[in-house]
Design a protein around this nucleic acid. Structure first.
Length: 305
RNA sequence: GGUGCCAUAGCUCAGUUGGUAGAGCAACGGACUGAAAAUCCGUGUGUCCCUAGUUCGAUUCUUGGUGGCACCA
């Protein structure tokens, strides 16, 4: 067994949408003299600023950020790409920082950094389009059948009604000539740095109220115009996003504006719950209320190596 | 004031020829390895408006209320 020498501390502030990660991350980063690595699958995109509650210009001036507004809406990205980009960046940042602050709520991106993702090839765009077309025309059955032949082991455990999972598994089988399940190692990667996970949470009532108020604030800040500007690209994956997809229905004329706004609030609340469901099972997370700055600070001085 | 209709889940409503009830939406729980703010799965939470009667048994039938809506004055 090889011993991994660790250098540096990655401090991850995580929590559901609207809990108050941004403000706290700025304070901690300033204290540590660290930049902030955003871990948010939607704040990565340019043009999605208000609706994703990305850091403001002033906040970006207070502390340098990475992974905010770096992608075009049309760019392909994934948790694996994020793993690669972040590890590379961290290797260089840890040369002159003892602690680096990361913040965000994209569950799978966090896991990609802290646990790693298996070596699986990036999906060929043409193959994906072909399979999606097959799915649209004939449904999931023919795709399930092929998967059953090529990877019976995964067929037994996959959620057969979830077309994304089924299609992706088949894609990998077809691309590699190997069963998708044979590429899944179920093992956690070891990182050459110390990882500290700080979870932020509030009572549900308090969180929901913040989410609702924040959506109203977003509308005042010009979310409608921001959404209208990207409306022509509505079919892109980057725009399958709470805060935008609802307003697209308004632009289409299928929803009234008030209804769309209510739906943004509702979908944000549902998203926050989904995040908590994911985080709940992660026993490495130390939970705090965002106002417990002193406790968080004490905890950090205990755990930073 | 009179007549008629309605009152069942958080909301909109089905339904029970008398045996304590179910859909949609909402709400809640869960899954999750290159699309993840995505995608998918599961769960009914109820003084059936109140009161008195008939009945072995009433949310259902009858009486009287209360509230809402419509029409007539």
């Amino acid at each position: 067994m090889t011993k991994v020498v660790t250098k540096g501390n990655l401090i991850i502030l995580l929590g559901s949408t609207g809990v108050g990660k941004t403000e706290l991350s700025l304070k901690i980063a300033e204290k540590l003299g660290s930049p902030i690595l955003s871990c948010d699958s939607r704040q990565l995109y340019k043009n999605l600023i208000i609706g994703t509650a990305a850091p403001t210009k002033e906040q970006l001036e207070r502390v340098p950020h990475y992974f905010i507004g770096t992608l075009e809406l049309t760019d392909y990205y994934s948790a694996s790409k994020y793993e690669e980009d972040t590890l590379q960046l961290l290797a260089s940042l840890f040369n002159d920082h003892q602690g680096i602050v990361m913040t965000g709520g994209s569950m799978m991106y966090i896991d990609a950094i802290t646990k790693g993702i298996d070596e699986i090839p990036t999906v060929d765009e043409q193959l994906r389009q072909d399979l999606l077309e097959l799915y649209r025309e004939q449904g999931l059955d023919p795709i399930r059948e092929q998967l059953k032949l090529l990877d019976p082991e995964f067929y037994d455990i996959v959620d057969l009604k979830n077309h994304k999972r089924v299609i992706h598994a088949l894609e990998i089988c077809l691309m590699t000539g190997k069963p998708y399940s044979s590429l899944r190692t179920n093992s956690k990667k070891v990182r050459p740095f110390n990882i500290i996970k700080i979870g932020l949470k509030r009572d549900r009532e308090e969180l929901y109220e913040r989410i609702n108020l924040r959506v109203d604030q977003m509308m005042q800040d010009g979310l409608l115009e921001e959404a209208r500007n990207v409306y022509p690209y509505r079919d892109l994956n980057s725009l399958n996003t709470v805060g935008y997809k609802e307003l697209f229905n308004y632009f289409d004329g299928t929803w009234k504006l008030d209804f769309a706004i209510e739906k943004i609030k509702q979908n944000s609340r549902i998203y926050s719950r989904k995040q908590m469901t994911w985080f709940k099972r992660d026993e490495e997370i130390q939970w705090f209320h965002p106002d417990q700055e002193k406790e968080i600070s004490d905890y950090l001085s205990l755990t930073i190596k």
